[in-house]
């Protein structure tokens, strides 16, 4: 089962939910936790452990200037402005290239081949028995997060239980992380911002056809507006975490709630079973 944790709004507690869920489940089975927030991965902070690292590359075109006749076909084809053909020169802007390979296909002189260009890294570690952590990290200055997320997910493709912590927002990196997931936990907080961005996130998961349930974090104990929204949209509130100084302190030390306060493990177990039900996975 592939379970995504998303939110819309940043800072609602996605990583906290993902980390505690993975920590709890790893006691009873094999879990893979994938940090898909590749522009700011943070799950490794909860699970310090030696990691093996590999590079993520994307193919980019290299033009052989001796074979190129500057016909301009590649430049016309490129929708991203990555290639500009002048009468005697060709200019390539790697940060605009989306690695589609089209320029290579349309070149009538076979003057273009592809070479790998590094855009980020993947780190894999085993911080506790039963738990595998995969973190994608986008290199500073590299604009394309999606290929790094795709590579991170590919490493977990065969694993039985995968928990994917997504980036905040509802843009391409989030959609890429959600793609192919069986269920999604949307973490929100009962503030106007939390609700506004939850609505956007609900829209995205429903368009992707992924069943979703809600976790309310930093609850004020009432959550009227959020609960009304969930009722109206037939969304189950699967778990509520209180607005608590103690939880905040545990979290900000880089500790895990379920380790410091093991009584929370049963809540996270119950959350997982609700997610399985959402996804239609039976015992």
């Amino acid at each position: 089962m592939k379970l995504a944790i998303a939110s819309g709004k940043g800072g609602t507690g996605k990583s906290m939910v993902a980390a505690n869920l993975a920590y709890t489940l790893a006691w009873t089975g094999q879990v893979t936790l994938v940090d898909c927030d590749v522009e700011e991965p943070n799950l490794h902070l909860f699970f310090p452990a030696p990691a093996s690292t590999r590079e993520v590359t994307v193919p980019v075109p290299v033009v052989d200037e001796t074979t190129c006749r500057h016909c301009g076909k590649c430049g016309e084809f490129c929708q991203y402005g990555a290639l500009t053909v002048l009468s005697k020169r060709i200019l390539f802007f790697p940060e605009l290239c989306h690695s589609c390979g089209g320029c290579m296909l349309v070149c009538p002189n076979n003057a273009i081949h592809e070479e790998p260009k590094r855009i980020g890294t993947l780190s894999v570690s085993a911080p506790q028995p039963g738990l595998k952590l995969i973190s994608g990290t986008l290199d500073t200055g590299s604009p394309h997060a999606v290929p790094v997320i795709r590579a991170a997910k590919k490493l977990a493709a065969q694993d039985p239980v995968v928990i994917l912590d997504t980036a905040p927002g509802t843009s391409c990196p989030v959609v890429e992380a959600l793609d192919g997931c069986d269920a999604c936990i949307l973490v929100t907080e009962s503030t106007p911002f939390g609700l506004h961005d939850l609505q956007l996130a609900v829209d995205v998961v429903s368009r992707l056809g992924i069943p979703a349930g809600i976790v309310i974090n930093r609850s004020d104990g009432k959550d009227e507006e959020t609960l009304r929204f969930c009722t109206d949209h037939d969304l189950e509130v699967m778990m509520t975490l209180p607005f608590s100084r103690e939880i905040a302190a545990i979290q900000s030390r880089g500790d895990l709630l379920c380790q410091v306060r093991p009584e929370w493990q049963k809540d996270f177990c119950s959350l997982f079973f609700k997610c399985r039900a959402l996804a239609g996975v039976d015992e």
Binding site: C78, Q79, Y80, G81, A82, T84, L86, L91, F93, L96
Partner: peptide, 28 residues
């Protein structure tokens, strides 16, 4: 969507423009 700077520059090249008067021209 993106990469509009180099594409717009190609329009100028295709029209045989020799000088550009504008406010802000991006790096690419």
């Amino acid at each position: 969507g993106g990469g509009v700077g180099p594409k717009a520059a190609q329009v100028l090249i295709a029209n045989n423009v020799k000088a550009l008067v504008s406010g802000q021209v991006g790096g690419n």
